[in-house]
Simulated scan of single mutants.
Amino acid sequence: MTTGTWVLIGTLALASVAGLAWRRSQGRVRAGKMSSLPAELRKLVDPGSRVTLLQISTTFCAPCRHTRLLLSDLADKTEGLRHIDFDVTDHPEVATSLGVLTTPTTLAVDSQGVELMRVGGVPKRETLLDALRPHLAPE
């Protein structure tokens, strides 16, 4: 085999590993990063809900539409849960302040605006609901 063939095989292998790692991270629930939201997002949090799902989207994001439908349906069927979609297309500074690098990213915040967890990509419904249950339970 020639050197070019080996380079091609190596490149394809590396791209496959990177693609699998990226795909595995999509929809995974992770611990929250921020103690408090920026002011423009804090005013969107419902103080009457135990948890607000704050979806960070952009207008050109196809997975954002699927996420919006999933989270809206979940919020409609779950007591104490609210869904808000915030488009950062014209507000990149908000995405930067939150450490959001891809859309959709969903932040689960409590009634005070403190981040409980976040999900990059389209959430897996049951995984997200399982992670939210302790925060939705009556005190």
Rank of each mutant, 00 (worst) to 15 (best):
A15W: 06
P104G: 02
T11W: 15
D85K: 04
D87M: 07
V94C: 02
P38E: 03
L136D: 05
T3E: 14
L98Y: 14
W22A: 10
R125C: 09
D73V: 13
E40D: 04
V29C: 10
G4Y: 13
R125M: 08
W6I: 07
G32C: 06
K77V: 12
M1T: 14
S97N: 10
R68V: 00
S36I: 06
H66L: 04
F60G: 08
L74C: 08
T105A: 07
T106N: 04
R68I: 06
S16F: 15
L71N: 04
A131M: 11
A75E: 08
D73H: 15
S49Y: 02
L132T: 01
L20Q: 13
T3L: 15
T3V: 13
S97H: 07
A131P: 02
A108R: 02
A13S: 10
L37N: 05
S57R: 03
G80Y: 04
R28K: 12
G113R: 02
V51A: 01
A15G: 14
V119Y: 03
R125Y: 14
S49A: 15
S35H: 15
L129G: 01
V114W: 12
G80P: 06
V122Q: 11
T106D: 10
L81Y: 04
G99C: 00
M34E: 06
E79G: 08
S72E: 14
T11E: 12
K43E: 14
S111F: 11
T59V: 00
R125N: 08
R125T: 09
S16M: 15
P92I: 08
G27E: 02
R24D: 14
W6L: 13
S35Y: 12
T52I: 06
S36Q: 10
L101W: 07
V17D: 12
R30T: 15
R24M: 10
S16P: 12
S36G: 13
Q112F: 11
G19N: 09
F86E: 00
P138L: 01
R133D: 09
D85N: 07
